[in-house]
């Protein structure tokens, strides 16, 4: 049984250099992601400062149970992702594939739960901006709160979708037995990305669902 190692790209001197370049590049990309979301967190801070009573009242309309379930689902998916990276480093291809499949499954679960949450909000008219049409009285500017809710979780959801795409990509490469102790960079950087998606949710969950 032989693995197909991708050859060293022409412009690198060694596999070590190639690996550390890829890893640094990914960390920089993650820094960029953090700054991308930071704008939304700043908007959140500003509007919560302007309308604290809205945030207190409006968050009651989010489903904490579903949110907490999703938090557990996503945290578990980070565990399986970490196990997948470990398996790739040890050359355990079967473990790698199982853990990647589990991660993908958890990601799907997350989005399915999110779908039910969204459709419930849409049903009640708890929507952003001019689409807001809920009957319950929420003081202040509830349309802004739900604007934040949909934009923040929506962009996070898009990141989950992209994550599923790249997990599927390394799963297929795993089927071809491309990863092992000598070469597993793609698994590792996809892992880094997935953990970031998880970390962002860890901030979104308390900020949106657990306002006190």
């Amino acid at each position: 049984m032989s693995r197909r190692y991708p050859p060293l790209a022409h412009h690198f001197l060694s596999l070590g250099q190639q690996y550390s370049a890829a890893k640094l590049g990914m960390w920089l990309f993650l820094a960029q992601e953090v700054l991308f979301f930071s704008g939304l967190f700043m908007a959140y801070a500003a509007f919560r400062y302007f309308y604290p009573e809205t945030f207190l009242a409006a968050h009651e309309h989010l489903n904490v149970t579903l949110g907490a379930t999703n938090t557990i689902v996503l945290l578990t998916s980070s565990l399986t992702m970490a196990l997948a990276v470990r398996a790739a480093q040890l050359g355990q291809n079967k473990q790698l594939l199982i853990n990647l499949a589990l991660t993908f499954l958890f990601a799907t679960t997350f989005l399915v739960i999110k779908y039910f949450e969204y459709s419930h909000k849409i049903h009640l008219g708890l929507l952003p901006g001019k689409f807001y049409s809920a009957h319950e009285h929420i003081p202040g500017q509830p349309a802004l709160f739900f604007g934040l809710y949909f934009v923040m979780t929506g962009l996070h959801g898009l990141h989950v979708l992209v994550g599923m795409g790249v997990i599927a990509w390394i799963f297929i490469r795993g089927l071809n037995r491309e990863f092992g102790p000598e070469y597993n960079t793609p698994v590792e950087i996809v892992g880094l990305y997935w953990h970031l998606v998880d970390v962002i949710w860890i901030f979104l969950f308390p900020l949106l669902y657990l306002v006190k």
């Binding site: 991308f36 930071s38 001019k130 802004l144 604007g147």
Partner: peptide, 25 residues
């Protein structure tokens, strides 16, 4: 480029959402 540009990206995205969906930020 890496640390400032994403903030423009989210700003412009919010402006697009503002125009398209009247999100009101």
């Amino acid at each position: 480029q890496v640390l400032a540009t994403p903030v423009l990206a989210i700003t412009l995205l919010l402006l697009v959402v503002e125009r398209a969906f009247g999100i009101g930020f």
